[in-house]
Simulated scan of single mutants.
Amino acid sequence: MDGSTEGITCVEFDPAGFRVLAASYDKSAILWRLDDSVPKVTLTGHSRKVTAARFSSVLHQVATGSADRTVRLWDLHRAADVASFCSDLVCSENCIISGHYDCKIRVWDTASSCVQELPAQGRVTSLDLSSDHCQLLSCCRDDCLQLIDLRRWSHNRM
């Protein structure tokens, strides 16, 4: 398969087994159909090598992680970045939640639309979702943890 000008760091088949997604040292992620050696989509926007690329549980979305310390969420229908400067994300069956350096936590529906924007106490560095998907824990650069009850969208600073 053609398309990368440097080494590939990560590869994955899509759930249906018809496409391959790769992360590359050339600061991009590349998507191929198995029946075509020419890339279908090249996702660019990271400033350093892309170290991870995975298909999301949401149809037509992929997430990429980079040595530039960002995680990006991409809509393959638009082949555009839908959540720039994302530091972390968590996925559930119904949505993707992303933490950002602009002090916001964003909730995305399955159509890649931001349905809720929650304020964070600082630049979000990491997120974790409880096993029952009812609580979100965020860590911010101001050395605080924030517990969010997703059932009520309430905020409890820890």
Results as ranks from 00 to 15, higher is better:
1 M>H: 08
2 D>Y: 11
2 D>L: 13
3 G>L: 12
4 S>H: 15
6 E>H: 14
6 E>W: 00
7 G>I: 04
7 G>K: 13
8 I>P: 02
9 T>H: 11
9 T>S: 15
10 C>A: 08
12 E>A: 15
12 E>R: 14
12 E>G: 06
13 F>L: 15
18 F>V: 05
19 R>A: 00
20 V>T: 05
21 L>P: 01
21 L>Q: 03
22 A>R: 06
22 A>H: 03
22 A>K: 02
24 S>P: 09
24 S>M: 02
24 S>W: 00
26 D>K: 04
28 S>G: 04
30 I>L: 05
30 I>M: 05
30 I>H: 07
32 W>C: 01
32 W>T: 04
33 R>W: 03
33 R>H: 09
34 L>G: 11
35 D>Q: 13
36 D>F: 06
36 D>I: 04
36 D>Q: 07
40 K>R: 10
41 V>A: 01
42 T>W: 01
42 T>K: 15
42 T>R: 14
43 L>Y: 03
44 T>I: 00
44 T>K: 05
45 G>A: 07
45 G>T: 00
46 H>F: 06
46 H>R: 07
46 H>K: 02
47 S>G: 04
48 R>C: 05
49 K>E: 02
50 V>I: 08
50 V>T: 12
50 V>F: 09
51 T>H: 05
52 A>I: 02
55 F>S: 07
56 S>V: 04
56 S>Y: 01
57 S>H: 11
60 H>M: 14
65 G>I: 01
65 G>C: 13
66 S>D: 02
67 A>H: 00
67 A>K: 03
68 D>C: 07
69 R>G: 03
69 R>I: 01
69 R>T: 10
70 T>E: 08
71 V>E: 00
74 W>Q: 08
74 W>L: 07
74 W>E: 08
75 D>A: 07
76 L>F: 08
77 H>L: 12
78 R>V: 11
79 A>K: 09
80 A>W: 01
83 A>K: 05
85 F>W: 02
86 C>T: 08
87 S>H: 06
88 D>F: 06
89 L>S: 05
89 L>M: 15
90 V>I: 09
91 C>W: 05
92 S>T: 15
92 S>D: 10
93 E>F: 11
95 C>Q: 13
96 I>K: 07
99 G>C: 01
100 H>T: 00
102 D>A: 12
103 C>I: 06
104 K>P: 07
104 K>N: 15
105 I>D: 06
106 R>N: 13
107 V>C: 11
110 T>E: 10
110 T>G: 03
110 T>V: 08
111 A>D: 11
113 S>G: 08
113 S>M: 13
115 V>F: 09
116 Q>N: 14
118 L>I: 15
118 L>H: 10
119 P>L: 08
119 P>Y: 10
119 P>V: 10
120 A>E: 14
120 A>G: 14
121 Q>V: 10
123 R>K: 15
123 R>E: 14
127 L>M: 11
129 L>Q: 06
131 S>Y: 13
131 S>N: 14
132 D>S: 10
134 C>S: 13
134 C>T: 14
134 C>P: 00
137 L>R: 06
138 S>Q: 11
139 C>K: 09
141 R>G: 01
141 R>E: 12
143 D>G: 02
143 D>F: 09
144 C>R: 13
145 L>F: 12
147 L>V: 14
147 L>I: 13
151 R>N: 02
152 R>G: 00
152 R>H: 10
154 S>Q: 09
155 H>W: 02
155 H>Y: 03
156 N>G: 00
157 R>M: 04
157 R>T: 06
157 R>K: 06
158 M>Q: 07
